[in-house]
Computed example of a mutant assay.
Amino acid sequence: MDVHETAPQLINWDLAAATAARLSPPGPQLEPWEAADAVASLRRLADAAVPHVHRITGLAAAEDLRDSQVLVVDRASWAKANTQGFQVMLGPVLTQLVEKKASEITPSAARMGGAVTGAQLGAVLAFLSNKVLGQYEPYSALAPGSTAPEAGRLLLVAPNIVQIERELNVDPEDFRLWVCLHEQTHRVQFASAPWLRSHILEQVAQLSDSLIGNMDSLMERATAAAKSLRDRPWAGVSQPVPSRGAILDLLQDPSEKAAISHLTAIMSLLEGHASVVMDAIDAAVVPSVKTIRQRYNARSENRGVLESFVRRLLGLDAKMRQYTDGAKFVNAVVDRIGMDGFNQIWDRPENLPTEEEIHAPEAWVARMG
């Protein structure tokens, strides 16, 4: 069996993208001219957001972002881009799995299993495809056959942005610029720290080493967790699944926990930093920003029971906490040593905060001298 031929078959990436496209809810009804206007508006406002990101962050990378591109996409295109990103991130994991289970995974079994996992991944992406407003995607450029620029691409999901601005009944131009400020900040982060993409991939690879090495134990934990969920009535329960997401709570090995802790700190930093940029924008830039913040935050608090359950299962509520925790960290550091002092965080991997330092900014400041 050729490991490099079998491993990619463990997840049918094309089926995942096709399934997500088929299952994604329809977007808002737009006349052709409305759709064209929304696309043109988002492209224009994405460009307009960059000088504000530069002014607030002081990051020189914001002055020249030609190493990546901005794409205004629909839900299906967003899902396809993410299957490409997952293919890059999970490639080493799948290869290791095939190497460890070589006697158990035949090519035909890989293809059959790949169809199942591809469909399952597509269903998850379909659920997410109408939630995401934008995303900086740095990994798809490394996928086989990708035409993305080497540094990645910024995706703005037009149907979702239009749908939310209508639900909130806010000024479209203001809301679109507000969204672009957050997403362009992520693009600037990776441009300022060109080592960041490979560093995250290395952390994922280290985590996969541990997971593959403890596969039997992990399966036992997964079975126990599934039984716990099955036997436990969750309707109306404030915390039906573990607070960090069922997947993360399966990790018990110290090396697994350390890898997840480091990745959590990185994500908290990136999301919190982008939130700080958004919060630094006042009415002089986005006239209705106060209304947008109030209505957007209120919307996030009014999810249905089923959606809340799925979000917890996928760990999405943990991601929302990353916005808050990371923003507190960034603000605290900037208050103590200024934005220039904070920006040394992008110089090298050793300058990244630990998860403990995210909650104790003074410890990071002390470590940085």
Rank of each mutant, 00 (worst) to 15 (best):
Y136E: 03
W234Y: 10
E202Y: 13
Y139V: 04
R153S: 06
V237A: 12
V188D: 02
D174W: 02
V204W: 10
I247G: 01
L201H: 06
E165K: 09
F175N: 00
V237L: 08
S146K: 05
S192N: 06
P233D: 06
P194G: 04
A158M: 14
P138H: 10
V237G: 03
L229I: 07
A143M: 12
Q163Y: 10
Q203A: 07
Y139S: 10
E173G: 13
L154P: 01
M215V: 13
L201K: 01
D216T: 15
P233T: 04
P144S: 13
I200A: 02
Q206D: 13
V237T: 11
D231H: 08
V179D: 00
S210I: 09
D209T: 07
R244Y: 06
P233N: 05
H186Y: 10
S146D: 08
I164L: 15
R232L: 07
G152T: 02
T185E: 07
Q184I: 00
Q206G: 14
P240R: 06
N169E: 13
F190I: 03
T185W: 01
A158Q: 14
A205Q: 14
S243I: 15
V157Y: 05
L218C: 09
R221M: 03
L229M: 11
Q239F: 10
A143T: 10
A224I: 08
F175H: 03
V157A: 06
P194L: 03
E202S: 15
M215H: 14
A148P: 01
S208G: 15
W178G: 00
H186S: 07
E183W: 04
N160E: 10
A141W: 04
N214S: 14
V179F: 01
Y136P: 02
D216C: 03
W234P: 02
V204S: 08
L168F: 04
H182I: 07
P242M: 10
P138T: 11
R244E: 12
T147C: 05
L218D: 09
V179A: 02
L142R: 13
V157P: 00
L155W: 04
A205Y: 09
V157H: 03
M215P: 05
R197E: 14
R232D: 11
H182G: 06
